[in-house]
């Protein structure tokens, strides 16, 4: 089973462990990931906030490169990149926008590759395999945190339901975990304000952590590097906003599954977290 792969910038830098765990889990499930050649940054919130054409052109180049390589399906683990690529694909269904972007890129673009997130990848190509290969059930009580970019806007992503999504919960239950019914599954963590408004990130992420902690979560499960870094790397700032500081680890869905498949903490990059992971 071969599938296109767009890691995105975070996965090569501040979220290396996400990359490591995606690659390790894919390997364990016999999924071959083919990285898009010479991929560029999707532009993230910055491009989107500053210039519309730029915000469409950057993701369009990525997808054009994938098409050139003949990749009909591309998995995008970073929720922010996944969102930008999907939204761009949708926007470029408009003929004027598409021809303008093709003109800028000087590359053919069809919008034909299917963009999927990591949950879809696991659901579609891994579910049976995972069940068969569980060696160490992930017997933990966790809170699945989806954030904004994985589920909204529903009209374009058409992925999980917007309120109280379930796909990640289902996955965790499949590998032997219990998931909490909690209230902050899709409330924003502060997103791109990590550097520019750390105070707001601390407050918003603090609300999320507090609810999970109050309900007895052993860990938060995420599928977005931005959420992960806000909740993990900014823990110092967050804890200053909380009455009781929290040491709940924040791990990627692929790390949780990797653990169930018997992969080591090392392989899954669990040592790279700021908040120590002992699961």
């Amino acid at each position: 089973m071969k599938i296109g792969f767009y890691p995105g910038c975070s996965l090569t830098g501040s979220s290396r462990e996400y990359n490591e765990s995606v690659v390790a889990v894919a390997k364990a499930l016999d999924i071959e990931l083919i990285e898009i050649n010479d991929w560029n940054c999707c532009g993230a919130t910055a491009a989107h906030a500053m210039n519309e054409e730029l915000s469409l052109s950057l993701p369009a180049r990525i997808m054009a490169m994938a098409e050139k390589q003949g990749l009909t399906e591309v998995v995008v683990p970073c929720a922010a990149c996944y969102n930008r690529l999907k939204v761009t694909q949708h926007e470029l269904e408009d003929d004027t926008k598409r021809s303008r972007v093709i003109d800028i890129l000087k590359m053919p673009y069809q919008g034909s590759s299917r963009i999927i997130n990591v949950l879809q990848l696991l659901e579609m190509y891994g579910a049976e395999n995972i069940k068969a290969k569980i060696t160490r059930p992930f017997a933990h009580k966790v809170a699945c945190y989806y954030g904004c970019l994985l589920v909204r806007p529903h009209s374009i992503l058409k992925f999980d339901r917007v309120e109280d999504p379930q796909s990640m919960d289902t996955m965790i239950k499949m590998v032997g975990g219990t998931t909490l019914d909690w209230a902050f599954k899709t409330e924003c963590c502060g997103a791109g304000f990590s550097v520019s408004r750390t105070d707001l990130v601390a407050k918003l992420s603090g609300n999320i952590l507090k609810d999970a902690a109050d309900r007895g979560a052993e860990a938060l499960i995420v599928a977005c590097p931005m959420c992960q870094s806000n909740l993990d790397m900014r823990r110092g700032a967050i804890n200053k906003t909380l009455e009781t500081p929290s040491d709940i680890p924040v791990i990627y869905i692929t790390q949780a599954i990797g653990l169930a498949l018997g992969l080591s903490a090392q392989e899954l990059g669990l040592k790279r977290h700021f908040v120590t992971v002992e699961l």
Partner: peptide, 16 residues
Amino acid sequence: AFHKSFLDSIKNTGRL
């Protein structure tokens, strides 16, 4: 400021 710095990085290297 953050957005601008971010975009500068992409412009120069293609990645963040």
